[in-house]
Computed example of a mutant assay.
Amino acid sequence: MAPPAVVSADELPAELFVGKDAERVTMDDADFKLFSWAELLDIIAEAKLELLTRVPSELRRYLMWKKGAVARYGSVPNYVLEERLHWGPDPALLVPVGRGLLQDRRDYKILFNDFPYGFEDGVVHIVVWSKFRIHTIEPPTSSREKPRVEAADAAVIEDFVESTFRAPLGMAKGDVAWFKNWAVLMSIREIDHFHVLLRSPPVDGLTRGEGWTVLERIMGADDVEVRRKWGSMDARVALLGKS
Rank of each mutant, 00 (worst) to 15 (best):
V80C: 04
L206M: 15
I137G: 14
H125N: 13
V18K: 06
L101I: 00
G122H: 12
D234T: 06
V184F: 09
P201V: 00
P77D: 08
K67A: 12
V70L: 06
R199N: 15
P140A: 13
E58R: 05
S142D: 12
S143V: 06
V70N: 13
V176N: 09
D107Q: 08
V176I: 01
R217E: 15
F179E: 07
G220Q: 03
L51F: 08
E46T: 14
A221E: 15
V176L: 03
W37A: 10
A183P: 08
T213P: 00
A45I: 03
E216G: 06
M64Q: 14
W37G: 11
N113F: 08
P116T: 06
E210M: 00
T141Q: 14
W230Y: 14
F160W: 06
M186R: 14
L198P: 14
V184E: 11
L41Y: 07
L169M: 11
E210C: 00
G231E: 04
V76D: 13
P77C: 10
D42F: 07
V123S: 11
F132G: 04
W87A: 09
V25S: 12
V97R: 12
Q103N: 09
I137N: 12
A30L: 05
I134H: 11
W65M: 02
E46D: 14
G205K: 02
R166S: 11
D104M: 03
P116A: 07
I188D: 11
P140I: 07
L185P: 08
E150F: 04
R236Q: 12
V80Q: 05
L169Y: 02
R228E: 15
R61A: 04
V203K: 13
R60D: 04
L94S: 13
D31Y: 02
K173A: 12
V226S: 10
H125W: 08
V237W: 14
H193I: 00
W129Q: 09
K20S: 12
I137L: 15
F119I: 05
P56F: 04
I157S: 10
D204H: 14
K20P: 01
K66N: 13
L41Q: 15
D222F: 11
G122R: 08
Y73W: 11
V127H: 02
I188V: 15
R208D: 10
D10V: 10
L40I: 11
A155L: 08
G74Y: 02
E190W: 03
W37I: 06
E50C: 02
I157H: 13
L93N: 04
D31V: 01
T141L: 15
R24K: 13
F35A: 08
V76W: 05
I137F: 15
D114W: 04
S232W: 03
L63G: 05
A45Y: 03
K33V: 04
D21A: 09
D29A: 10
V161W: 02
L215E: 07
M186V: 03
L81E: 15
G220M: 01
E39D: 15
Y108D: 09
K131L: 05
A30I: 01
G231L: 01
L198H: 09
I43G: 06
V7Q: 02
P202A: 11
G19R: 00
S232N: 06
H86E: 15
E58H: 10
V224S: 09
G174M: 03
S187E: 04
L34Y: 07
L94I: 00
H195R: 09
V128G: 10
A9H: 05
D234R: 03
P96I: 00
P147N: 02
E15H: 14
Y62I: 03
L63E: 10
L206V: 14
V70Y: 07
E82C: 10
